[in-house]
């Protein structure tokens, strides 16, 4: 594949990914990466299990955290028995792993429902918030990075980087409150809190509050990547051959920067679900993060483990998808 008239090779990405032999290679890659997730998850489960076995406090003690009379001693004993908390640590671990092998996350101590029933309603709101935050981050951060890099040292560059640094250093809680104050209380444009599955309006403020930090990171990463590529030999060659600046940026720079942007994007999307705790709490958003915090406070260990597994899985899957996407944007990277 040739870049029209210039003789400069442009990434023949998609035929590599979707070429004749690629699907089977891709499938092997996905399978291998999926299998690699198992030991990662096992280690995570073990760490959580050990941590909550040694930290003080228990589900029973959390029942009286409000200072009401202690739960009846018989009730405590039966609760311990019911949840298997009276068994030795290793037996409990084995029971949990055995259940996990059968896709059984256990029973929530608090709600006495299967853990999946507790986690499942929180999943979509969490994904929705993470994706919306990332959409905002990409929509604002990538163009900002590009603009800044194309005019290095200019007022635009300085201003953009100031925004980026501010975005990285803003406390999410404070920024979220500021958004509430301005857009809900002062302007009355948006609701200040809450979740409505059918409404886009409730998503805007939490998504911006959560997305501001990855936006800033993306802006800085994009700027650095663009500056790097702009100084590369092949860009100089393309310029010497008379490729116009817009075409140079679109066809050569952007594509080469994409791998770096994708990496940042993937890591951020992956970690946003776990990072959303503060924003979920502030905006009464029913995500996994706030569930995790509540479950830790109540020592509802099965739900904590379940939520952590979901967050880790999300991170691993997103990163696998990013690896797959690498091959689509850069033919030098093979999914092997």
């Amino acid at each position: 594949m040739k870049a029209g008239g210039t003789g400069v090779p442009v990434a023949p990405a998609f035929n590599l990914v979707f070429g004749e032999r690629q699907p089977s290679r891709m499938m092997r890659f996905i399978l291998r990466r999926t299998l690699q997730m198992i030991p990662t998850l096992l280690v995570v489960v073990l760490i959580i299990f050990v941590i909550f076995s040694v930290v003080p406090g228990s589900f029973i003690s959390s029942l009286m955290s409000e200072g009401r009379n202690a739960t009846n001693a018989d009730v405590m004993a039966h609760l311990n028995q019911q949840f298997g908390l009276d068994k030795p640590l290793l037996v409990r671990l084995w029971d949990y792993l055995w259940g996990l092998a059968h896709f059984d996350l256990g029973i929530s101590y608090r709600t006495r429902e299967p853990v999946w029933n507790v986690i499942e309603p929180r999943l979509w709101p969490s994904i929705k918030l993470a994706l919306a935050a990332m959409f905002f981050a990409a929509l604002v951060g990538i163009p900002l990075g590009f603009v800044a890099a194309l005019k290095p040292g200019s007022v635009i560059d300085t201003g953009t980087m100031m925004v980026a640094i501010s975005g990285l250093s803003l406390p999410e809680f404070w920024f979220g409150l500021l958004l509430m104050y301005v857009f809900a209380l002062q302007l009355g444009w948006l609701p200040s809190f809450g979740y409505n599955a059918d409404s886009f309006q409730h998503l805007i403020l939490p998504a911006i509050a959560l997305g501001v930090s990855p936006m800033a990171l993306l802006a800085r990463t994009t700027r650095a990547g663009v500056l790097d590529v702009m100084n590369a030999d092949f860009v100089r060659t393309a310029r010497a051959k008379g490729v116009s600046e817009p075409r140079l940026v679109r066809s050569h720079v952007a594509r080469n920067v994409l791998v770096l942007v994708l990496t940042t994007l993937g890591l951020q999307v992956g970690s946003l679900m776990g990072q959303a705790i503060v924003i979920e709490k502030l905006f009464s958003w029913p995500g996994i993060g706030s569930l995790l915090v509540d479950s830790v406070a109540a020592r509802d260990i099965p739900v904590v483990q379940g939520a952590v597994i979901v967050i880790v899985l999300w991170f691993l899957v997103i990163n696998m998808l990013v690896d797959v996407a690498y091959a689509a944007v850069d033919p030098r990277i093979k999914v092997t």
């Binding site: 409150l177 809900a184 200040s192 809190f193 009464s284």
Partner: peptide, 18 residues
């Protein structure tokens, strides 16, 4: 019944009539 643990968020929502 809104489940709102954050006092500052409740404050904004209350002043905003939500």
């Amino acid at each position: 019944i809104m489940l709102m643990g954050e006092a500052s968020a409740r404050d904004v929502a209350f002043r905003n009539g939500e």
